[in-house]
Nucleic acid binder design. Structure first.
Lengths: 201, 201
DNA sequence: TATTTACGTTAACACTGTTATAAAAAGTAA
DNA sequence: TTACTTTTTATAACAGTGTTAACGTAAATA
């Protein structure tokens, strides 16, 4: 009874070919110009086939949001593992976050610009939770080593993430064409400030 | 020769009636559901009339972006004038920024979400420059009073704005329904960290 | 009064996401 | 192989979008 398996495999292939074509189009024209019809054209199938494999356009975007957070989590995790000093970890993770955003502008724009992650959405996407956990883990360690081990990790986590996202956002509207070299200092500056409020001894 | 003046006045009235209708629709349904046809319906004119007064939809959105930045600048300026202590100013301006964002979610979403202010756009919008100047003014004063009066004000300005925008953004995706009361602490925490890096004596 | 300019409308173009309907293909059972 | 059922695919449409060309009509000018 390998037929069912083959069918499942073919279905999976179709799904990923849709995503592949969509990704190509996004890289060419940006999210704003991605349409179901263009995807259908690219894979040389009719439009309803897309809807046979995905509930709607949002579901396709969600898939990329997942991918984005997965990649981001990976990059941040690698940065964390480069050192054992928790303050260094926070700095390197911040830089990894920024590097990810600018190396994958399309991903980042979708994850925070178009996807508009609502409250329940964030909680329901596994990959987002996984990312949160990665940051929170380091924050917790930092707080435990600090002079204020009773500090609220939720608060510090939100502060940290906010700073990173803010930096990326503001730098992105500054034009991705010629990024100001001082942006590196802005990042260091902001994270240094954050670390100082942690009271690491 | 009051005819030309009356015509200009009528043109201006039509323009503001378009904006008024658009704003009503946005408050009802959100930016995503604003359409030229709905505006035309609301003002009881045909569609091309909109295009007679505005180059395109983006021009209408730009008008609101301007309004938004104008209001934001005003609110932040008022907060600045509440105190003479520059560190207090930075804190109050930050809170005013946050308050503006949540009291005018539609504005803020347009200003940073949909409008997608590109580099040249930011530089060309007078209201944005005015806002930048307000923040930069306080930052410059703060630096002058600090132990490092040669610090780069551009850098500090960007850091400050990034922190504020990041806080607002991350808090907004957390759901505007029931804002976590700890968000107040997150804000204080982040700005405190920023102020500490300024080295105010 | 004739003519030009400004304003407004109708109707269309070229798109968009989405789906109802129907046909074809593939698998299952007799 | 034939009849039937399920899974895929396609055509064509619906309802909406931003935008504009073509064409009137009303107002101001000469």
């Amino acid at each position: 009874m390998g037929i069912a398996e083959r069918k499942l495999r073919q279905k999976e292939e179709m799904k990923s070919s849709i995503l592949e074509a969509a990704w190509k189009l996004v890289q060419q024209d940006g999210w704003q110009f991605l349409s179901i019809r263009k995807i259908a054209d690219a894979i040389e199938y009719s439009v309803p086939v897309i809807y046979y494999h995905f509930e709607n356009k949002e579901a396709i975007l969600l898939e990329f949001t997942r991918e984005g957070f997965q990649l981001l989590t990976q990059k941040v995790g690698e940065a964390r593992d480069e050192t054992d000093q928790v303050d260094q970890q926070l700095m390197r993770m911040g830089k990894a976050y920024r590097d990810f955003a600018f190396a994958n502008v399309e991903y980042y724009q979708l994850m925070f610009g178009l996807g508009i992650p609502t409250c329940d959405m964030v909680n329901s996407i596994e990959e987002v939770k996984s990312f949160s956990d990665t940051l929170t883990g380091v924050i917790k360690t930092a707080i435990a080593q600090s002079r204020t081990p009773d500090a609220d990790y939720w608060l510090k986590f939100h502060t940290y993430w906010s700073i990173l996202h803010g930096l990326v956002s503001i730098q992105m509207i500054g034009g991705q064409a010629n990024p100001d070299p001082r942006n590196e200092l802005v990042l260091q500056d902001a994270i240094t400030g954050f670390i100082s409020t942690l009271g690491l001894s």
